[in-house]
Structures are given as structure tokens and as C-alpha cells.
């Protein structure tokens, strides 16, 4: 049975991690969670991102946003780097989410085949 007491322990663990990292996280991973995103399957994507980040301790914060106006490309995951870089991944599912974390957040390599530009190029 969980209780608010658990949070004390979790707080200490979180603080230790922050100390190790120095100066915040390198990436911000944002999932589109408006009606269009959810309808297209953003929930399992967001859940997977949160679970994987917790388990593998990726250097990112996972958050969400509303509709960004590209509903046909949902589920959309955007990755913002500390250096100002910005990548938009489209038609993401749970497996692709794992790969994005592994390659982009883990190794700093953009997963080109899932980006909006390459998906659009393939459509033409």
C-alpha cells in the first residue's frame, strides 16, 4: 500500500540524481496530448516515455502539449535540446518512442526516418 511517506525516499533519490547531473536536463521531450493526439494513440507513447525515462534514467524531462495543428501526423513527439535544437517526430508509437529515447536522448543522434521532414518527403 502506497502512502505519502514513500515520497520522502523518492525525494532523496531525485535529489541525488540532480546533483549528479549538474545544471538541469539536456532534453525536453514533449508529446502532443490534445484530442487529436490521444485519438491517434498518444497515450501509450507518453506512458512508454515516462516509464522508460524512469527505468533507464535518461537525461530528459517528459512533458506534454496541446494541439500544434498537424493533427494528421499525430502522435507527435518533439525533442528540444538544451542547445536550442528542435526535432519533430511524427506517427510515433511505443516502439518508436523507445528508439527515440535510446538514439536521440541517449546518444544525441536524431532518428531521421521518423522526423516530420522525412515522413513528408516519403509522402510526395
Amino acid at each position: 500500500m502506497k502512502s505519502l511517506e514513500d515520497l520522502k525516499k523518492m525525494r532523496e533519490l531525485a535529489l541525488k540524481k540532480v546533483e549528479m547531473r549538474e545544471g538541469g536536463k539536456d532534453y525536453r521531450v514533449v508529446v502532443g496530448m490534445a484530442t487529436c493526439g490521444i485519438a491517434a494513440g498518444a497515450r501509450p507513447v507518453l506512458n512508454k516515455l515516462v516509464e522508460e525515462t524512469a527505468e533507464k534514467d535518461y537525461n530528459c524531462v517528459v512533458t506534454q502539449t496541446g494541439c500544434i495543428g498537424m493533427c494528421v501526423y499525430e502522435p507527435i513527439v518533439e525533442v528540444y535540446g538544451k542547445d536550442g535544437s528542435h526535432t519533430t517526430y511524427v506517427h510515433v508509437d511505443a516502439d518508436k518512442a523507445v528508439k527515440i529515447l535510446e538514439e536521440h536522448v541517449g546518444k544525441g543522434k536524431v532518428v531521421e526516418e521518423y522526423t516530420v521532414d522525412s515522413v513528408r518527403a516519403r509522402e510526395v
Binding site: 515520497l7 523518492m10 531525485a14 540532480v18 515516462v50 524512469a54 524531462v61 517528459v62
Partner: peptide
């Protein structure tokens, strides 16, 4: 500590 820590969210 932020609520956005993934362990805290879960």
C-alpha cells in the same frame, strides 16, 4: 523536487 520526475508521476 519536481512532480515531473518520471518516478514521481508513475
Amino acid at each position: 523536487v519536481s512532480l515531473l520526475e518520471p518516478e514521481i508521476l508513475l
